[in-house]
Nucleic acid binder design. Structure first.
Length: 600
RNA sequence: GCCGACGUAGCUCAACGGCAGAGCAACCGCCUUGUAAGCGGUAGGUUAUGGGUUCGAUUCCCGUCGUCGGCUCCA
């Protein structure tokens, strides 16, 4: 699926425009420095734009952008032809003498081994140059015919960031300039608007404005604090999953946050996951770790529960468990990436034959939940092990697990694309990547097949043949992590949660003091019916209270003055701005119930 | 962790070598209100933090912590 999309993009005009814009930017940047001082690395088109990596004598600043953009427009105005030339490796090396990154790339091409990102290539590629004006780059193209085909009003330099040469943190860090480029100025405007909209929806900003969660220097980085409203949101989201998966036959267990380190030596975490674990704690000569994953705990529980018959399987152990992961400081991002991560985790113990039906059950659950949250589409990534990376070495079990996962997906007609090097250390995964209303992709759910840990931890069940067998363990999460999921839905709904999810569903607005007692009475009535409501009994004007509720994105505003008090009614206003006038309390209740059921 | 930018009142932002300010929020009063901000007053700061330069530092320099944009990693 995704493969098709990428190949289409590579053939598009936009791709050529962005690729060419990258070359033009590289020319403009190198011209800022004396000849030979600026070293260039790579500069490909990317989604929405392009970048180019440089090794420069000085740090660039955003203040350099106007000059670079101006020079780029001049180069565009020159209508210089992009000329392709196929060359020998020797000739290429002569041309890029003094350009160490290019020389390294040429060597990779010469050996027929690697492309510009260091990925292995199947065939030995030809080496080609593209030249426009005075600038020549090692490049396989394609490009626009001449620089004049770039719209000078439809590109913009966006930001500067550090990036490792070939994406390897052991290599030198280069300066990367990101730019965006489009066919028309209007498309550029629309892109910038989308960026602005994303900024407005940023869950870190909305989290503060809606008073959902905080981070504190006194608590520590990556460790969120949830307010009553934020916790309500968490609770509703988790409880919804809990109730739904219970209906699907998942049971819940509880395991503690602290575990003996020895268990992680047996499970493989110690060898493959140690750098993500918080440092050890020692008491009475025993070394403990904060739990970074649930699997070993759930598997140990399975073992402690005695002999298991094949008749008990599949056995599904679910838990909303907070895990502790020592993420690198620079990786923390609001709720999307925290050090105390709560997973809606499940480990299903089953036979190899049951993998297919468990896969079906799980995807049915995913679909139901995604519909509830109005995620219109998702893609599935089959995450396989890759070269290098940390994986338990047991090729036979890996092959069996991969085959089993593929088969399960195929049997259930799940479409997927494959990605090497994305597997968990203990097995392959099917990762669900959902699209939000702005079209952004988020990895949420996962379904994983594990042949490794159950064997390492010595799990068994007694089969029909009265012999001991090792169960397969399926790892599964729906939200993935409560915190990240909240981040995603805050941005997805822009903070205007559907009624069923809104921490405060209705604000009651008495117009004057004499209406407050009536508002309190109605509030009690609504609470008794299970609604989450607040009374704004302050001395503000009604319109100020409405404004307040609007800003808090509360679904219903119930205004009450003399008229309503006399007739036992409430005047209903929706956050859309719609004024529905006075209705009875009962009429409001049935409307709210209807909205909740519909998922509005 | 790495590269860069940024940290001023609860929030959003001014001041940029010479007495640290505004709006909103909070608190107190007045108003008793009809669908997105009624009026007045009060209080709020060792300018993230530790050093340095200077007669004098929020402002310039260095370290630390944190946040942001990326890289790496990832639920």
């Amino acid at each position: 699926m995704a493969q098709k999309k990428i190949s289409r993009y590579e053939d598009s005009d936009l791709y050529k425009i962005r690729h060419s814009a990258a070359h033009i930017m590289a020319q403009a940047v190198t011209e800022l420095f004396p000849p030979g001082e600026a070293k260039v690395a790579i500069g490909p088109p990317i989604e929405d734009g392009f970048y180019y990596d440089f090794d420069l004598p000085r740090q660039l600043k955003p203040e350099d952008f106007p000059a670079i953009e101006k020079r780029m427009r001049a180069i565009i105005g020159g209508k210089f032809e992009f000329k392709k030339r196929v060359v020998s490796a020797d000739e290429a090396k002569r041309e890029f003498k003094g350009q160490p990154y290019k020389l390294e790339l040429i060597e990779g091409l010469e050996k027929g081994g690697f492309d510009e990102y260091g990925n292995p290539l199947k065939e030995k590629p030809e080496i080609s140059f593209y030249t426009h004006d005075s600038f020549t780059d090692l490049c396989r193209g394609p490009h626009v015919a001449n620089t004049g085909q770039i719209n000078p009003d439809a590109f913009k330099l966006m930001n500067i960031a550090g990036a490792y040469w070939r994406g390897d943190e052991k290599n030198k860090q280069l300066q990367r300039i990101y730019g965006t480029a489009w066919e028309t100025a209007q498309q550029l405007e629309e892109y910038l608007w989308r960026q602005e909209e994303a900024k407005k929806r940023d869950h870190r900003k909305l989290g503060k404005e809606l008073g959902l969660f905080y981070f504190s220097d006194d608590i520590g980085p990556g460790i969120p604090l949830f307010t009553p409203k934020g916790e309500m949101l968490r609770h509703i989201a988790e409880n919804y999953i809990r109730e739904t998966q219970t209906r699907y036959g998942f049971q819940h267990v509880w395991t503690a946050n602290l575990v003996k380190e020895d268990l992680y030596k047996k499970s493989g975490h110690y060898d493959n996951y140690a750098d993500v674990m918080f440092p050890p704690m020692v008491g009475d000569g025993v070394t403990y770790r904060l739990k970074p994953m649930n699997c070993p705990s759930h598997m140990t529980l399975f073992k402690e529960m005695g002999l298991h018959s094949y008749r008990e399987l599949p056995l599904r152990f679910s838990e909303f468990a907070t895990l502790y992961r020592y993420e690198k400081s620079g990786e923390l991002t609001g709720l999307a990436r925290v050090r105390t991560v709560t997973q809606d985790d499940c480990h299903t113990f089953c036979t190899e034959e049951q993998i297919g039906s468990e896969c079906a059950l799980t995807f049915k659950l995913f679909n139901e939940v995604f519909a509830r949250y109005r995620f219109s589409s998702y893609v599935v990534r089959l995450s396989l092990r890759g070269e290098g990376g940390k994986y338990v070495k047991d090729p036979e079990k890996w092959d069996r697990a991969e085959a089993a996962l593929r088969k399960a997906l195929d049997e259930n007609n799940v479409e997927y694309y494959e990605a090497e090097g994305e597997a968990a250390f203990y097995g392959p995964k099917a990762d669900i990547i959902a699209r939000d209303v702005l079209g952004r992709e988020w990895q949420l759910s996962t379904f994983q097949v594990d042949f490794i840990q159950p064997a390492r931890l010595g799990l068994t069940y007694i089969g029909e043949d009265n012999q001991e067998h090792t169960p397969v363990v399926l790892h599964r999460a729906v939200m993935g992590s409560t915190e990240r999921f909240l981040a995603v839905i805050i941005e997805h709904f822009a903070g205007a949660f559907p009624v069923w999810l809104a921490p405060v569903q209705a604000v009651l607005i008495p117009i004057a003091d004499r209406h407050t007692a009536y508002a309190q009475k109605v509030a009690e009535q609504l609470k008794a019916a299970g609604l989450r409501v607040e009374v704004n009994a302050g001395s503000d004007r009604m319109s100020a209270k409405i404004r307040d509720a609007q800003n808090q994105k509360v679904p219903y505003m119930l205004v009450m003055g003399d008229k309503e008090m006399e007739s036992g009614a409430v005047a209903l206003r929706l956050r859309s701005g719609e004024d529905l006038g006075a209705i009875s309390v009962d009429a409001f209740l049935s409307r709210a119930k209807e909205d909740i059921e519909k998922g509005d």
